[in-house]
Design a protein around this nucleic acid. Structure first.
Length: 568
RNA sequence: UGGGGCGUGGUGCAACGGCAGCACACCAGACUUUGGAUCUGUGGAUCUUGGUUCGAGUCCAGGCGCCCCAGCCA
């Protein structure tokens, strides 16, 4: 199977798959998405999802979406729906939806088989005893600052029970005869193994908790290590792609495959995505939502898929970003700026341009006829001629951006100021004559004159202006709410900080008196625009007909802001 | 004083023994009816010490640094 150069998957994974196909280790490719249904998808999950998806796709294989629902105490059906919805929005297509719980019966049979082989046993030790008998790591690790040397584990007193007794106890564990925590089934490997995961790992624990799919049938539930790899085998998954934290699990993954003689799925690891300023911790994400710090799982400041979607980030941008990162096994932190650059790139090519004034300042053209209204031709997207043009109404009284006028201009400022001429986009050249102030000295109106010969924005005499500003016609403009977002956190690695110390108090600014051009009046939620010279925006579901609400996705690059900040 | 993984500009990736390249960021400039986009240019990196080799980011040996692992979580 040949894969094109424009591969969307990491080269070291592609090479491994190609090799497996070439050597005949596998004759087909099948991958799996393994979400645990206990939370919403975020940008970090996308990486694994996309790698699994594109690996299957590029090799003409299949992708299964398999929910890892082995812990009924934490999981809910709600998330099963949400995850599928979000993954579908991203553009991922799968061939089949399965659940770890689909395989509970077969898995149990395999456990019985291991018991019969003398490779698993029921342990009656308490959790504390088990932990104490597992041995220790040396000092210098985060678990053991002062503790002495490595200590191997010691065998459980129950380690050498007879097969018959183990079989009986396991059966009764399954039937719910014992209290939670009283017994577990363990694989019998090696309590002195240097890899702690191999020191007789727990396979089943007792939980008298109803499961969202199997109800009250089971009183024991499998641990990750005794489920995931077995499910991979049962489903004929060829490549089980996961993050680096599972590297240490691989020997155990392979131990079960070998002892059971089952289909030899291959686990390959890659580094997870770390994005600066993004919250990935499930626990903290939940806290943000439940405490009301953000508006919900789809708050546009969150890097959940739902948040990104509401914010206006197109799925293609996420795909471009993630697949464009390249991949190694290195621990890495990607800068949010890189994500934003991709978002701008995609939106620049696709978003329709509109004029919107966020902080309005009245502009009166004194020599323009009082009742005249002209329809100006405006280009919808200079990057895409096929997007066509539209008409925008123009009249004597307009609103412009407060930032676009200065009574006393700083150096290099070439927008509107008394005596200066600028272009009103797609309209006329206007020259500022004077301002009107209220009793407090605030500017309430800017007055100017226009040059009737410059309709459309070009001067017949060839004179140039250094700035073009956007505007809306006062009598035609639609009032809108605009929500401006900044980073939710003040630190690059919010997962590592205390929530109340790292929140950016200015992460949300709501502007309720914005004025936008009439064509935006009935924009549908999810529509994305570039408000010229301001940024990219997406219509929010809170919008009502004639009362649109917009979320700022990202700003435009603002070179004036840079100049201005240097002046200070 | 365990086991495992990883070290290339500020950040993320390339270079599979042969001129260290790309993107983002940064800086300078050109162009512009978006101070957008586009274009051009500058600066800046192989963790370290040895070894092998005509030649090492790459191979070998030793250091150093960072990350992961003692849930009946996944």
């Amino acid at each position: 199977m040949e894969v094109t150069k424009s591969s969307r998957i990491p080269s070291f994974i592609r090479e491994a798959v190609e090799e497996d196909l070439r050597t005949g280790r596998f004759t087909y490719v099948r991958t799996r998405l393994p979400p645990e249904p206990n939370g919403y998808l975020h940008i970090g999950h996308c990486k694994a999802f996309l790698i699994d998806y594109f690996t299957a796709k590029e090799f003409g294989g299949e992708l299964y979406l398999r929910f890892d629902d082995t812990n009924p105490a934490k999981e809910e059906t709600e998330f099963v729906e949400a995850i599928q919805e979000d993954a579908a929005w991203l553009g991922i297509k799968w061939d089949k939806v399965t659940f770890a719980s689909d395989y509970f019966d077969l898995l149990y049979e395999w456990a019985v088989k291991l018991v019969k082989m003398g490779l698993a046993y029921v342990d009656d030790q308490s959790q504390e005893e088990m932990s104490a008998n597992r041995g220790t790591l040396p000092k210098g690790t985060k678990w053991s600052e002062t503790e002495a040397a490595v200590r191997p584990g010691v065998d459980s007193p129950w380690r050498n029970r007879s097969v018959e007794e183990n079989l009986d106890l396991l059966e009764r564990m399954k039937n719910g005869e014992f209290p939670e925590g009283s017994r577990v089934l363990r694989a019998k490997i090696d309590m002195a193994h240097p890899n702690i995961l191999m020191r007789d790992p727990v396979m089943y624990r007792i939980m008298h908790v109803p499961h969202h799919r199997t109800g009250t049938k089971w009183h024991i539930y499998p641990m990750y290590d005794w489920s995931h790899g077995q499910n991979d085998s049962m489903e004929g998954i060829t490549h089980s792609l996961c993050s680096n934290e599972y590297i240490i699990h691989r020997p155990l993954y392979e131990w079960f495959i070998e002892k059971l003689g089952i289909f030899p799925s291959r686990q390959i690891e890659f580094s997870r995505l770390n994005l600066t300023y993004a919250m990935m911790s499930k626990r903290k994400l939940r806290k943000l939502v439940e405490s009301g710090i953000v508006r919900g799982w789809d708050d546009p400041r969150l890097t959940t898929l739902r948040g990104l979607r509401r914010r206006g980030v197109p799925p293609e941008a996420i795909i471009e970003f993630v697949t464009g990162l390249g991949e190694t096994k290195n621990d890495s932190w990607v800068e949010m700026a890189q994500f934003e650059a991709v978002i701008r790139d995609v939106l620049n090519k696709t978003a329709l341009r509109r004029m919107a004034v966020l902080k309005p300042l009245k502009l009166v053209i004194d020599n323009y006829p009082d009742d005249l209204v002209e329809e100006m031709d405006a280009i919808n997207n200079p990057e895409d001629p096929a997007a066509g043009t539209r008409k925008v109404p123009f009249s004597k009284v307009l609103y412009i951006e407060q930032d676009d006028f200065r009574e006393v201009p700083p150096p290099k400022y070439f927008r509107l100021f008394p005596g200066n001429e600028v272009r009103l986009r797609y309209a006329y050249l206007v020259k500022c004559t004077h301002v009107v102030k209220d009793e407090k000295g605030n500017i309430t109106e800017v007055h100017c004159t226009y040059d009737p010969a410059t309709r459309g924005g070009d001067a017949p005499d060839g004179r140039k202006v250094k700035a073009t500003i956007h505007w809306v016609s006062a009598q035609h403009a639609v009032r809108a709410e605009v929500r401006l977002y900044e980073q939710l956190f003040t630190v690059e690695r919010p997962d590592e900080g205390e929530l109340d110390e790292i929140l950016n108090p200015n992460s949300l600014e709501v502007l309720s008196d914005c004025l936008v051009e009439p064509s935006l009046s009935n924009s549908a939620p999810g529509e994305r625009f570039q408000f010229e010279r301001v940024g990219y925006f997406c219509t929010d579901p809170d919008s009502r007909p004639g009362q649109p609400v917009f979320n700022r996705t990202v700003t435009l690059k603002d070179s004036w802001a840079k100049i201005e900040s240097k002046l200070k």
